[in-house]
Design a binder for these strands. Sequence first.
RNA 1: GGGCGAGUGGCGGAACGGCAGACGCACGGGACUUAAAAUCCCGAGGGGCAUAGCCCCGUAUGGGUUCAAAUCCCAUCUCGCCUACCA
Length: 846
Amino acid sequence: MTDYNPQQIEPKWQAFWDSEGTFRAADPATDPRPKFYCLVMFPYPSGTLHVGHGRNYIIGDVVARYKMTQGFNVLTPMGWDAFGLPAENAAIQRGADPAKWTYDNIGRMTEQLRQWGVGYDWSREFATCDVDYYKWTQWIFTVLYKRGLAYRKKAPINWCPQCATALANEEVVEGGCERCRTPVQKRDLMQWFFRITEYAQRLLDDLSLLGEWPETVRTMQANWIGRSEGARIDFTVEGTGQPLPVFTTRPDTLWGVTFMSLAPEHPLISELVAGTEHEAEVTAFVDRIRRQSAADRSMETTEKEGVFTGRYVINPVNGERVQLWVANYALMEYGTGAVMAVPAHDQRDFEFAKKYRLPIKVVIQPEGRDHPLTADELTEAYVDAGVMINSGPLDGTASPAGIPEVVRYLDENKMGRATINYRIRDWLVSRQRYWGAPIPVVYCDNCGEQVVPDDQLPVKLPPTDQVDFRPQGVSPLAAVESWIRTVCPTCGGQARRETDTLAQWLCSCWYYLRFASPVGEGESNTQAYRKEDIEQWMPVDQYIGGVEHAVLHLLYSRFIFKVLHDAGTLGEVWPEPFKALFTQGMICKMSEKTGKLEKMSKSKGNVVAPDEVIAYYGADTQRLYTLFIGPPQKDAEWNDSAVAGSHRFLKRVWAQVDEHATGIATLQPYAGSGDDLSSEAKPLWRKTHQATRKVTDDIEHSWQFNTAIAAIMELSNLFADKSHALAEDEKGRQVLRLALETMTRLLGPMVPHIAEELWRMLGHDESIIAAGWPSYDEQACREDEIQMAVQVNGKLRGHVTVTPDADEQTIEKLALADEKIQTAIGSATVRKVIVIRGRLVNIVAK
RNA sequence: GGGCGAGUGGCGGAACGGCAGACGCACGGGACUUAAAAUCCCGAGGGGCAUAGCCCCGUAUGGGUUCAAAUCCCAUCUCGCCUACCA
């Protein structure tokens, strides 16, 4: 008898997988097995992992091991998303070197991953802050630059005062910084952008290829891209004749325009009011609104306000002059920054018009009313369907069905044209921080802006001892004079480096390509990736990560992948990087600080350290519990005492193998038809096949590890019930062998250490992965006889026992003959008998 | 305001038109033990009764479809996530 001692066996098997190279992917070009690229979103090396993080890696590991067991050539790499603010903040707060801080954390976290027994092809590991890696992140910037997809402009951008850096739109959450929640301000700054808008339509269209992605993620991306069809209509400023185009999705209401609103950021405002009596008031208003935080400005409760500019604009369709206002509800980021206001048919315009006593003009008449709708009777905007009125040549056109007609009219008369507008903005990629890849651009007095040629990459970060990390609103690199001074790659003259760095998001946009093609270090690091490797491994067959990346990382990655594809660097590949996506739920725990169920985090004080769980129960227990906790796509609550239950189960399986291994040592697992088995042995044999079927289905189709484990528990429970009786004869012992081997193999991907150990105890000398996935026989899963429920008028009244292939007449006869059923029917007449074979009988009686 | 998702025992959950509560946690009883831990066995949705059994009620609420609804449809409530003055 030996006891289950995870602390002893787990390091042993981890070392075994290492030395065997179990997780080393083979070259798909020469390996006959089908490839499977299984990728878990790589972590930011923040310091230590908690059990909540573990879910991601454990699920990924189960999938990888399952696929390997099934005979796939699996690529399962791991690395580090290592540029970013926490490292720099550590530098600011306690003078740590961001590089050292990062690599120390990587060391610690590598050890943690290893202790979980998650298997990776460590030969492909890198951190995005490695010079050998960020050289190619910079190269990707140059690819975009050369294709006209990277540009610099001065624009009102989101600024986080806490992080002292610009943020992308995608990084602003509820008006606050995605990282620190500080309210974001708008600032006019010169920044670098990627033209993701140019790919908006393709990013939207290709969502339809992603059938193996969660619906929610696709919806979120579609909403983020935010396509809307409408028209761009050319208004002009009265007097100056300046064009002032607007975007609208309701050109059918164009005749109802009674004023126009400009966003406070609109560039034309200062010019339009200069020297007029309205200048002071407008300027004061604009300044006040622009000082508000994005959160304050866009609160639902924020009242609409505005100010008249003193100017008028001309509506091209009817020549009407209407007042031009500046309003806080007009957004510079959307459309043209100018809104044609139709208060009768737009709720925001309606509220604004009421407040400032601006005219309201009905141009869409609802149908089926006894008297026409008038402006006076409106208490809110009428936004539903109707017929256009007061609309000149288009009177009588249906709305909104007739919108195309309106657009055609505008086009013919050169007043406007059909336009598709997207909500998505160009991606702001420059950051005023140190710990990122420097943007590979230099500014030459003679030649202007120059991208750094490939042969001069990488542009390395200066050593940290020359850098003052305290945020100043400009990149810390701007103060390193010796680093900034350089020569122009074109004329050789004096030039200065760009001092902003690239957003970390760009680093994580292509890491899966580098994993697929580990090019090498130093001298051999001659390209970002080899086309042949990409063609072999891409797309990622299964991507696993948190839903919080639904827009940011997953949208950026799709964009960059498409650009690299268009640039011809990827060869013949599927047009999307990630074929299937799985987003797992978070693990939560009651926080004593807030008294609420919260996502595990250090600041909430509710983390469970995996090291402690592993030291007490072992990694396999943590793995099993994490998988058993609930459906993996849903959030779950960590429960310390339930962990003990998972441990108990492993101990039980161990004891079962330990007890019977000797008795069955010389036997083969039972492989017969079941006909020769005793009435004791047959149920266990059948349960073994049923469990195999259930576990296979649950992993294959729905990733329901919780019910898969429940099925194995049922098998183990039945084993406990029958094992002593079965040990009496040889047939029985063969069934015991089959049950134990199957249990072990089904558990293999989930709790690999104990499974390897049990596999050896059962007399095998190869890794359990090499044993392959157990198969099952549908015939063997069939019960000899089944209990069918019998209902009378839908209520359960009894049972009949039949063979699975009993025909409907037989079943009906048996059911009606049952004493209890007869009592239930009583004096009523049987009208109808419904027999659902294998399930139940329902007798309708009245 | 919009979009998506979810509401099932004391708890996590299962079933996803066909016997509600698999599996586990916590709990109660028993065996082993001087004792405890560990382990093993048994019990358990709620209520009732003429208590080897039988009956009633039960999947947020109210309706509907169906022989049959936790599951499908409509309405309502609650919670969660995402998004938000998008013209």
